[in-house]
Structures are given as C-alpha cells and as structure tokens.
C-alpha cells in the first residue's frame, strides 16, 4: 500500500535561504514511511530535530534536500499546501498559543473557515467533534476558562473538524498535569482506533509504549526505529539517547544485576509483576 507520508532523504537547514555553507543541518538524510492508520511515537533529546521533522510533514517548512510526500503530493509545491494542511493536522505544545477563537465554537470553526466549509456543515461537524473530545455544552465558553487538558482537547477538536488523515502531536502533553495528559492520551488512542494516522512526539517512554512503532531521533537523524517492546532490551541505549528509563525496566535491570533469576526477555509491566510473584511464592 502507498504510505500516507514518505520522506526521501529529506534534510533541513534553518538558514538555507542564505546558503551559508557552515549552517548546521537541523535534519539530515531522513528516510521514513508512515502507513495509513499507523501510530508512531517520535522520541529524542531536545534539539534532535523532532519539531523540524513535524513541520516538514505539513509544508510549514520545505526540505532543503530530498523530498517529502503527503498522500502522493509533493510538499515542495506551493499549490499543494492547502490540501496538505487539510490532510495533516498538528497539535502543538503550548495550549494557550494555538487557540485563535474567542469561544470554543469559534476556535473549532477556524480551520474549517479557512477551508471554505459551508456554514451548515461547520455546525454539524462542531457538534460532532466536541462530542468526541468531551467538550459538548462548552461551545460558548471562553478558552481561557478551560483547563490545560481541555484546551489541548479543544485544539484536537479544531484539527479533527478539518477531517485530516494524519494528526501530529508535537509534545502536546508536555505542559499538562497528569490528569490532562491522560485526557489527551485517551483522545489520541481513540483517534487511532477510528483510523487516523497518529504521529506522537514525546519525551515520555511510557507514552511512546502506546504506539505501534517508535522512531528515535538524534542529531537530526533517525537513530533507531522499531516496535516499542524492543526498547525494553535496550536500557543502555535509552540512557545514551538521554531518554527517561521506565520504572519497570529499571527495576528489572537492577534485580537482574542483584542476581535474581528474572528473564531478560520480559517486555512489559504485567510480565514483570508475574515473574516477581512467582519468585515470592517460591520461598
């Protein structure tokens, strides 16, 4: 099947316009294919190029080298941008700085207004997406009265109303409290279940474990890519990529180092708990 997103050796330099040869590449030679309906987590230290990658995927930035394709459309061509922006939605980190409307309803409508969706259709979709993110009944609220989690859900609703095929979350949970995080993660899971392609940029290994595939970036390149449970065998690597090591993994490694007979292949909290129970009931 044709991937919804394809990067062919894409790279980006922030001052490519001035063609300064010494300018650093924020992204270099990235090859990546994202299948329709896939759920990908992107991880990596600050400055590794995650946001730059995200902005290449909807034409906010154009590749300085290589090509980026969205649903068969070249992002390098200006005339494709309106359609690409509709196909690829984006939710940013700061809940306050992505809300345009003075009311919840106005804000959800903003993207649709830009697409030229007729008013009747807008009203229908607003009702539908607010229902989905659990903000129905708050249409007339001022966004500044919403909690952080609610604001991010509003941002998601605004993107969903544009009927995108892909939604990119650029550290969309990082400024939220645990409750808000949960709300947004649940919304992401639901979107994925309904068939939307999800790209979730996050620093949390725990969040990344919800995805089907994890992409780790370092210095503007893709360092590693694979299924999340494979990360469980790579504790040393997590540390090297300066990613937080999840508690069950840390526990497993420490117990093993103490010489307890815990299998290396354990890949989840459940299995770990089970083997610990077995150990305890043996004595």
């Amino acid at each position: 099947m044709e991937p919804i997103i394809r990067l062919d050796g894409a790279g980006f330099r922030y001052d490519h316009l001035q063609e300064r040869p010494e300018a650093e590449w924020a992204l270099r030679g990235v090859h990546l294919q994202v299948g329709s309906g896939e759920y990908i987590a992107v991880m990596g230290p600050n400055g590794s190029g995650k946001s730059t990658l995200a902005k290449l995927l909807n034409g906010l930035l154009l590749p300085s080298e290589g090509k980026v394709w969205v649903g068969g459309l070249d992002t390098g061509l200006e005339k494709n941008h309106p359609l690409i922006r509709q196909k690829v939605g984006m939710v940013f980190q700061n809940p306050d700085n992505q809300i345009v409307g003075t009311t919840v309803k106005d804000d959800v409508a903003f993207g649709m207004e830009n697409l030229g969706v007729p008013r009747q259709e807008m009203l229908k979709r607003i009702d539908q997406v607010l229902q989905q993110v659990g903000l129905r009944g708050r249409e007339a609220s001022s966004p500044h009265h919403l909690s952080g989690g609610q604001k991010q859900r509003l941002a998601i609703a605004g993107v969903m109303a544009m009927r995108p095929e892909v939604i990119i979350f650029d550290e969309a949970t990082s400024m939220l409290d645990p409750g808000g995080r949960r709300e947004v993660l649940d919304a992401i899971t639901e979107l994925h279940r309904q068939g939307t392609t999800v790209i979730h940029i996050t620093h949390s290994v725990k969040e990344a474990f919800q995805a089907e595939r994890v992409v780790v970036m370092a210095d503007g390149r893709i360092e590693w890519s694979g299924a999340p449970h494979e990360l469980f065998h790579r504790r040393e690597k997590l540390t090297r990529w300066s990613l937080e090591v999840p508690l069950p993994l840390e526990l497993k490694e420490r117990l093993r180092r103490r010489g307890l007979p815990i299998r290396h292949e354990i890949t989840g909290t459940e299995e770990l708990v089970e083997s610990l129970w077995k150990l305890l009931s043996r004595d």
């Binding site: 830009n114 008013r119 607003i126």
Partner: peptide, 27 residues
Amino acid sequence: FRRAEELALAMEARGYRGGKGRTRIRE
C-alpha cells in the same frame, strides 16, 4: 512576541491563508 510567533505557526498549520475564500461561522 513568542506567543505571536507560535500562534502564527498554528494558524498556518490550520490552513490560514488570509481572508480570501474563507467562510464564516459567525453570522
């Protein structure tokens, strides 16, 4: 200023291209 910059980006990501061809929810 930082907010303005981020907001401009978010607006562009949501397909804003100036007033032309926009429909309106407020009537």
